[in-house]
Amino acid sequence: METAVEQTMTSRPDKPEPTKWKRAKKVFKGHPMAIAGLIGVTLFILTAIFAPLIAPQNPYDLAKLDILDGLLPPGSRLYDGTYSVMGTDALGRDILSGVMYGLRISLFVAFTAVLVGSSIGVLLGLLAALRGGWVETIIMRAVDLKISFPGILLALMLLAIFGTGVDKVIYALIIGAWASKARLVRAVALSEMKKEYIDAARLAGLSDFRIMTRFLLPNSISPVLVVLPMSISGAIGAEATLSFLGVGVPITEPSLGLLIANGNDYLLSGKWWISIFPGLVLVAMVLCINVVSDRLRDHSNPYLRAKD
């Protein structure tokens, strides 16, 4: 790959700057695994969005369920004549449909929590860098406190206090997501603060808020964007774990983790499909996100990029 310097030297003056789309394509060019991951992630998100249209059955509609269809292995013919690709659970719910609807909840919870949590983290990190003094001390000590404690225990503790539910899980994951971003952004923002454009903005009499949002934020955000996919896959796993342990989402809104927990009781009697298929989908999704995330991280590392 050409380095930035070579690029400006070889390009003619009238040649336009590469567009964002072209630069994005370059990140994935020559990395089939990462491209496969990207396609996988897109498919999972589309499935989640359009689940009500493409799922063979509505698993929430109890009138559609037939107890005679209960615990059928994958590929069985159901009472109404259709086939069940992934088998059914004890209530006769089609596992494939359950997985499609579960995907919606898993993705919704993880995306909401990570986006909100990261925004809070970025804001606090910028604030710490900009203000310094006691504001910085309080924010960064809080970050240390949060990071010294394993996320899963913190989430368990919060859910033990506040009770369970989709909203509570999102709060717990938000609290799990902010600290690392605050630390990351502060480190970058501190080095940005030393640059002249900040002094210029200060001299121009701009408010702290304006400097933070218009100058500091765009220049310090990229490392956070790189770790964002990893955070989302982590949040998907954390939500699944909490729901599996019975302190996550309620039974009326089953995420992938809860579907797996449902099948746990039948595992020992050899009815593996109830737990295994939702789990496979969960792992495939997390894996796709992680592969993309690894690629983004390698690309953002100038040392590795030079060796590409």
């Binding site: 896959s233 020992l268 969960l282 792992v283």
Partner: peptide, 25 residues
């Protein structure tokens, strides 16, 4: 390297279920 990425991506509790299914069931 691929296996470590896969290993990182499998949630702990589901790994446990797989282990039970394979070695115990």
């Amino acid at each position: 390297s691929l296996l470590t990425t896969v290993g990182y991506s499998i949630p702990n509790f589901w790994q446990a279920l797989l282990l039970i299914l394979v070695f115990a069931v």
